[in-house]
């Protein structure tokens, strides 16, 4: 997975203070975001007055049960979910339509089946007006970074689920987005592949400068990856608690047995259990 070519970049990136820098302006500012869906049983409040900031270079995970609106929040930041109330600023400017400085990785890889790995990754740069040669060079760099050189000319249907998702990540990075949004990208993978992918992502993250917002329902995944975890509740979606993850970096999935890690996990679980109980009692009485 790691090559000689990348180690220099890695050293460069880690020598810069990446996480704790508080720049004058957060990369993402979400204020009073509410999203209401029209269903056949009337209006449903999916997300209720959610506010949070993400600092430049920060890695934030949003955790919550399915249906809590965490994916909807992400899609809204991406500019894919249009009607919403409140304000979302990414890099200082309001969102409302997809922007090339915002990259997105979905739960399914959604690779273009008719394009080879190289052409899939080169798609973004091509669409932004780069020549085929430039786009190809960008793609080749990223292919080396995700360790799929042997599969550069393969078509997606010949790759495993984990490989496909690596290509999807590389494809999202090809436009050098300032903000990378990830919607349960490892949710469809088996446990072993998922652990490897988490380590890969942390490694990759050291080399790119993007701010990352990562949605998952897996608390372990959130704590391993994030600088900060936002815990959401369901029906309507709200942010219950914000937990800073002060575990040292570089991290790997090996921290899963550290005492400090376990303490953090207990905090998260308590919040989630209390909320689950509340939701259960509420649905019981209504």
């Amino acid at each position: 997975m790691s090559g000689y070519r990348s180690t220099t970049k890695l050293a460069l990136a880690s020598s810069q203070p990446s996480v704790k820098t508080v720049s004058e302006q957060p990369a993402i500012q979400v204020s009073n975001l509410s999203i209401v869906f029209d269903t056949n049983r009337g209006q449903m409040i999916a997300v209720d007055r959610v506010s949070f900031d993400v600092a430049a270079g920060e890695f934030v995970c949003i955790v919550g049960p399915s249906g809590c609106g965490k994916s909807t929040v992400l899609n809204t930041i991406a500019g894919l979910e249009v009607p919403f109330e409140g304000e979302i600023l990414v890099e200082g400017s309001p969102v409302g339509h997809p922007r090339p400085d915002i990259g997105m990785v979905f739960q399914q890889p959604h690779l273009f089946p008719w394009k080879s790995v190289r052409r899939n990754i080169a798609h973004g740069p091509r669409m932004l007006g780069k020549s085929a040669k430039e786009a190809g060079a960008i793609a080749d760099d990223l292919i080396a970074m995700i360790g799929l050189k042997r599969f550069a000319d393969a078509y997606p249907n010949t790759l495993s689920g984990g490989m496909q998702q690596r290509v999807a990540i590389a494809r999202a990075l090809a436009n050098e987005p300032r903000v990378l949004l990830m919607d349960e990208p490892f949710g469809a993978l088996d446990a072993q592949t998922r652990a490897v992918m988490q380590d890969n992502l942390l490694e990759l993250r050291d080399r790119i400068k993007a701010t990352i917002v990562f949605v998952t329902h897996d608390i372990d995944e959130a704590i391993v990856l994030a600088d900060r975890v936002l815990i959401m509740s369901a029906g309507p979606g709200r942010i219950l608690r914000e937990i800073a993850v002060n575990l040292p970096r570089p991290r790997s999935s090996a921290i899963l047995i550290e005492p400090t890690y376990l303490a953090l996990k207990r905090d998260c679980l308590e919040v989630i259990r209390a909320e689950g109980l509340r939701a259960f009692n509420q649905s019981d009485s209504s």
């Binding site: 090339p100 990259g103 690779l111 273009f112 798609h123 669409m127 494809r171 436009n175």
Partner: peptide, 11 residues
Amino acid sequence: GLIRAALMLGT
């Protein structure tokens, strides 16, 4: 999903 992915890539 392909259309959304393409949109996000600046298509």
